[in-house]
Structure formats: structure tokens, C-alpha cells
């Protein structure tokens, strides 16, 4: 199941479960999965709440989340979208990765915290990943998003390009805190779904897509 969560509709954070939001447990599961991936596995230096949840200052009401869950509501994969008209990671901390001013506009969003649950086996992981990529494109088209921007480690960058969508570098990569990072722009238009399909990226049949109502 794909859940599209527009945080402006809800209180965000691990306490969200205390509110009458149907997505509280799923958000908590996502923040816990993010802690497991980005803090425990990748050793990023980012804040952790209550020893269990990775939540930072960009997990605020302007953030949007795409979350894939299984039938029992367990987190499979997720991504966070930050509007570039509000403070976001590229524009706030990594402008040096851009040769010109970082792209900014109501139809440009930053993809951050692309997270695949560590419990997935290799084949499930690939399915969840491909489904989330397709969901990002479908969501972008539905919301009139023209461009995504993202910061990626260069090894992951090669994989991002392999999804088949149209990407361009925004500037020179740099070694930052021991990681070689680069910023890229991903162009989204009506041809993008076909480009993904031509590269073999399609949503998994076993993951049914259904957006929860935003209220």
C-alpha cells in the first residue's frame, strides 16, 4: 500500500500517534526505520528522538511523505519530499554542490531520506525500491511537480541514473564528512513513466497503490 502523507494536515513526529490520525503508527514506523538505516547502518550524524526515531528540523508541516507499507501496516520503504520554496537540505546546507543557485520553485521538490526497510530481502528490496520510484513519479505528475532535486552519494547516484528518468548534475561533487556527495536534478514530465518502464522499473504487483484520504 502506498500512503501519501501531507504533513500540513497532521501533527508530525513520533508523538503523532497520540492524535487521532490514522497514520500515526505508520509515521512512527517510518521514523524508526529511518533511524535503523541512516543512523545505525549508514552512521549519519543526525538527531535521534527517544533513542528510536530519526527526526530532524525538516520533518515539519511543509514536508510530504510517500510511505509503502505491507498489508499489516509494516514499513517497507519511504521518502520525504521537501518543497524548495521552504527551507530544505540542498538550499540550507549544500549550496556548494550547485554550480548556480539551487533550483527553487513551487513545482520543484527535494527528495530526501529515501529509505528501504532493512528487514527486506534482496528481491523484496528491489520491488519496494522500484515501486517507490514509480510512486514518486506518479505523485509528481499528479501534483504538477516539474523537477525533483536530490543529494546523493556518488555510488548511489549511478543507481539513481539507472532508473531511466532524465537526470542532470547540478554541480561538482565534493567530499563532505567522508562521503563523496553530488547534487542532481531529475526532470519529471509525461514521458517519465515510459522512461522508467523502458529501464525495467515498474511497481510491484503485490504492492497495491491506494492513497489514504488526507483528512
Amino acid at each position: 500500500m502506498l500512503h501519501i502523507h501531507d504533513a500540513s494536515q497532521f501533527m508530525v513526529g513520533p508523538d503523532a500517534g497520540d492524535r487521532p490520525s490514522p497514520e500515526g503508527p505508520l509515521l512512527r514506523a517510518m521514523f524508526a526505520a529511518r533511524k535503523s538505516v541512516f543512523v545505525d547502518l549508514l552512521k549519519w550524524d543526525v538527531p535521534v528522538l527517544a533513542g528510536r526515531y530519526e527526526v530532524d528540523q525538516f520533518d515539519n508541516p511543509s514536508a510530504q511523505y510517500l510511505i509503502l507499507s505491507d498489508r499489516d501496516g509494516a514499513h517497507l520503504a519511504s521518502a520525504r519530499l521537501l518543497p524548495t520554496v521552504h527551507p530544505h537540505i540542498l538550499g540550507s546546507f549544500y549550496t556548494s554542490l550547485c554550480e548556480q543557485a539551487p533550483p527553487q520553485g513551487p513545482d520543484i521538490f527535494e527528495i530526501t531520506r529515501f529509505c528501504l526497510d532493512r528487514r527486506l530481502r534482496a528481491s523484496e528490496r528491489r520491488q519496494a525500491r522500484d515501486s517507490l520510484i514509480c510512486a514518486l513519479v506518479d505523485h509528481g505528475l499528479a501534483q504538477d511537480v516539474r523537477e525533483y532535486v536530490a543529494i546523493a552519494e556518488l555510488n548511489w547516484l549511478s543507481q539513481i541514473l539507472a532508473f531511466g528518468w532524465e537526470c542532470h548534475p547540478l554541480g561538482l561533487p565534493q567530499m563532505i564528512d567522508g562521503r563523496m556527495l553530488g547534487a542532481i536534478s531529475i526532470h519529471i514530465d509525461a514521458a517519465t513513466p515510459d522512461r522508467l518502464a523502458a529501464a525495467g522499473i515498474r511497481p510491484s504487483r503485490s504492492l497495491h497503490i491506494a492513497a489514504l484520504p488526507a483528512a
Partner: peptide
Amino acid sequence: EIAGRFAFD
């Protein structure tokens, strides 16, 4: 480094 990755793709 970055051009090589785009070129390979």
C-alpha cells in the same frame, strides 16, 4: 567523477 557516471548511464 560525475561525468563518468552520467556517461556510463
